[in-house]
Write a protein that binds this DNA or RNA. Structure first.
Length: 287
DNA sequence: GCATCAGTATTACGGAGAAT
DNA sequence: ATTCTCCGTAATACTGATGC
């Protein structure tokens, strides 16, 4: 969704008294979830094509030529692509491109670098999630300072304890962030993060809010050292931590939170509603 | 035998539309 | 008006495989 389109839609939504969209990314994601295609059509979504599936079958040997072929076929491609003969050229391109980022008319978070020679793709291969012949360079994320209001532990279905940060709400990269993960007790104590601190926060990959560290110059004298939880926040049973391991666990097998989290997991894994879980399976999960 | 890589599980977030 | 659910995506921990 271009910034022009995004602003146009929001102007209209203001006129109609509707809440504004927060950012183009989520507005586009929401548009794709619309069941009414006439609304989707009005939103003017757009796309560049980057990958020509049948390139080798069409006797195209490399990525650069496949983009040119897509253009011949009248598909929209990104006019900014460039061939780089080595990594130094790639780096120079990134340096040159970054200042132009805000003149593009649409938001980007980085640049994709691809191997040009298509016949190498199979040899280079894939991990479970990603091709190994392409990688994204991500621009540094926006860092914002806000106040850490509280730290509280939560317990998941396995009993693992995760610590969460409650933050003074702050706008980062187009969303209001109120909370962020602090992972585990070691993460917090290693950085000596304390409640009441001003902390640096960013969104990893422009999505996941993350506390980076506290701001040393703004530490208050009265700020007390943070203490890790000793008992489960749900059932108050004593937490266990295996020597040499990082995570604390609630080992109470009938901890209510563990059971409900377990049910949630079971349901989402099997794409069912809570109501659809049979009594037998609930018993099994309970055990 | 150690270091690194890869894969999986878990947990996490906010915004969006849909459902209640 | 509120709650539910989906979506995309990252960090961390741990385990097993692979490479040197």
């Amino acid at each position: 969704m271009s910034l022009e389109e995004f602003n146009k839609i929001n102007d209209e939504r203001i006129k109609l008294g509707e809440p504004e969209f927060a950012n183009p990314r989520n507005a586009a994601a929401g548009t794709l979830r619309q069941l009414d295609s006439t609304i989707v059509a009005k939103r003017n979504l757009n796309a560049f094509l980057y990958y020509y599936v049948n390139a080798l079958g069409d006797e195209i040997q490399n990525q650069y030529d496949s983009l040119q072929r897509l253009e011949q076929l009248k598909f929209k491609t990104n006019p900014e692509y460039r061939y780089c003969s080595n990594i130094a050229a790639v780096w120079a391109y990134i340096q040159e491109y970054e200042p132009k980022r805000h003149q593009l008319g649409y938001e980007i978070d980085g640049i994709v670098i691809k191997v040009n020679n298509l016949s190498l793709y199979n040899r280079i291969g894939y991990t479970a999630k990603n091709p190994k012949w392409a990688i994204a360079y991500k621009f540094p994320a926006e860092v914002v300072v806000t106040k850490l209001l509280n730290i509280f532990p939560s317990v998941g279905r396995t009993g693992r304890i995760t610590y969460n940060a409650v933050l003074e709400p702050v706008r980062i990269a187009g969303t209001i962030v109120r909370a962020a993960t602090l992972h585990n007790a070691d993460f917090i104590t290693e950085r000596d993060i304390r409640i009441g601190d001003d902390v640096q926060v960013k969104k990893a990959g422009d999505i996941i809010p993350e506390v980076i560290n506290y701001v040393v110059e703004r530490r208050q004298q009265k700020a007390k050292k943070w203490q890790e939880a000793t008992h489960c926040p749900e059932c108050q049973s004593l937490l266990e931590r295996v020597t040499g391991e990082v995570d604390q666990y609630c080992i109470n097998s009938v901890c209510p939170k563990k059971i409900t989290r377990g049910l949630e997991h079971y349901c989402s894994r099997n794409a069912m509603n809570i109501e659809g879980v049979s009594e037998k399976n609930i018993e099994r999960l309970y055990k």
